[in-house]
């Protein structure tokens, strides 16, 4: 067990984004985090990556409490993330963007540059290394987010809607990238709307609805679960 979320709750003002969420993530798996808009997926990511502190509950990485320690400590502990709306460093080149991540593990710029070069190669962005980050196409920017996160040598990678809005071909190569990442020994949690893309990829999925865990299970169980169908499609689609 790599990550454990225990009874996590987080409210923003009067809005309960996450309520009493508990689940575990096994070493080496790809876990899906799905649910309709506003289910609290990104909010949960923000807690796991240390960007926000949960109001209640705790998050353990390898049995060590990481909730409330802040994003820098979480990055050092081995948690990396991508953002739903890409946040590239637009005044820098693609290589320099990834070097920022690589500096989390390397002191000298020579070492960081070499590590960043390897990651770019892995993510298929090596031909773009010298380009300014702003000039990349949207799917390339998503890849850059992944590359930058991987450069911190994470044990757990959080992907926030990495495949959303891509064409089927682009999404397919994104799926391959995620498989490759897992093959490297990195555990992945991915937030995704597009069920047909996520479900074949993940071993298990956590379904959130209105801030709570609706169900946790294997993809084939989840698509048959009446609660899930109700949450996504409404009552009248539930088979009786």
């Amino acid at each position: 067990m790599l990550l454990e979320v225990r009874g996590l709750s987080k409210s923003f003002g009067g809005v309960a984004a996450n309520v009493d969420i508990s689940f575990v993530v096994e070493q080496g798996e790809i876990l899906g985090l799905i649910g309709p808009n506003g289910a609290g997926k990104t909010s949960l990511f923000n807690s796991i990556s240390g960007e926000v502190t949960p109001d209640a509950g705790e998050i353990l990485l390898d049995g060590r409490r990481i909730s409330g320690l802040g994003p820098v400590a979480c990055a050092e502990a081995g948690i990396a993330r991508t953002f739903q709306v890409v946040r590239s460093f637009d005044s820098m080149t693609v290589l320099e963007n990834v070097m920022v991540g690589a500096f989390a593990r390397h002191r000298t710029s020579r070492a960081a540059m070499a590590a960043a070069g390897d990651v770019l190669e892995f993510c298929g962005l090596a031909p773009r290394a010298g380009r300014p980050a702003w000039s990349l196409s949207p799917p390339e920017k998503r890849r850059l987010e992944v590359a930058r996160a991987l450069a911190t040598q994470p044990r757990l990678l959080l992907l926030d809607e990495m495949l959303t809005g891509l064409t089927p071909t682009e999404a397919q190569s994104g799926v391959q990238l995620i498989r490759d990442v897992r093959a490297r020994g990195v555990t992945v949690i991915m937030v995704e709307h597009v069920m047909e893309v996520v479900l074949p990829l993940v071993g298990r999925a956590v379904v959130l609805n209105l801030g709570r865990v609706l169900t946790i299970g294997r993809p084939e169980e989840i698509v048959k679960n009446p609660e899930v169908i109700r949450a996504y499609l409404g009552d009248r689609y539930v088979a009786h």
Binding site: P71, V72, A75, R81, F83, R87, F89, V100, A104, A149
Partner: peptide, 9 residues
């Protein structure tokens, strides 16, 4: 936000 997610203090 991106900077601190990558471990930048």
């Amino acid at each position: 936000v991106a900077a601190r997610s990558l471990g930048v203090r």
